[in-house]
């Protein structure tokens, strides 16, 4: 392992290593971050939710958006899989259906970054206890 010779070296090393543990920092305060929940039940996975989740994880990181990507169970909208629920800080969660990589890209660029609503929203028509 390379020797750390200066403070700048140390800071560089820290940057490199941050991605290893920043998930743990984020998990402490999820409500202040963008939360992305990908439905990963059988129906979701069959329609490609795995790839979508992969896309969110890598792309959000690449575009340096602080977000927590988690998986969840079936949301019930099996007809519209893969479904993704996005919660922006301080806003109500919104569920998007038929999400593929292209749609995910649009969601990141337009909804997560700009706050614009995009097509494909599934209105939430039930209450939870």
């Amino acid at each position: 392992m390379a020797v750390i010779k200066t403070l700048d070296d140390l800071k560089k090393r820290q940057e490199e290593m941050k991605s290893r543990v920043n998930l743990r920092d984020k998990a402490e305060n999820p409500e202040s971050l963008v939360q992305v929940k990908v439905a990963m039940a059988t129906c979701g996975i069959a329609s490609g939710a795995k790839e979508v989740m992969e896309f969110f994880v890598t792309e959000l990181d690449k575009r340096s958006i602080d977000a927590v990507v988690t998986q969840t169970g079936c949301m019930g909208y099996c007809f519209a899989e893969p479904t993704v629920e996005i919660t922006l800080p301080g806003k109500e969660p919104i569920v998007f259906g038929y999400v593929d990589a292209e749609k995910a890209d649009e969601i990141i660029e337009r909804y997560i970054k700009e706050g614009e609503l995009v097509d494909g929203i599934i209105p939430q028509n039930y209450n939870t206890i």
Partner: peptide, 25 residues
């Protein structure tokens, strides 16, 4: 309970030795 104590990189990611660097420089 947050880091792997046997891995210095995880400590560095959480600011280990930054204070030492600051004090020395």
């Amino acid at each position: 309970g947050t880091i792997d104590p046997e891995n210095i990189d995880e400590s560095i990611a959480r600011d280990a030795y930054m204070a030492l660097g600051k004090v020395i420089t």
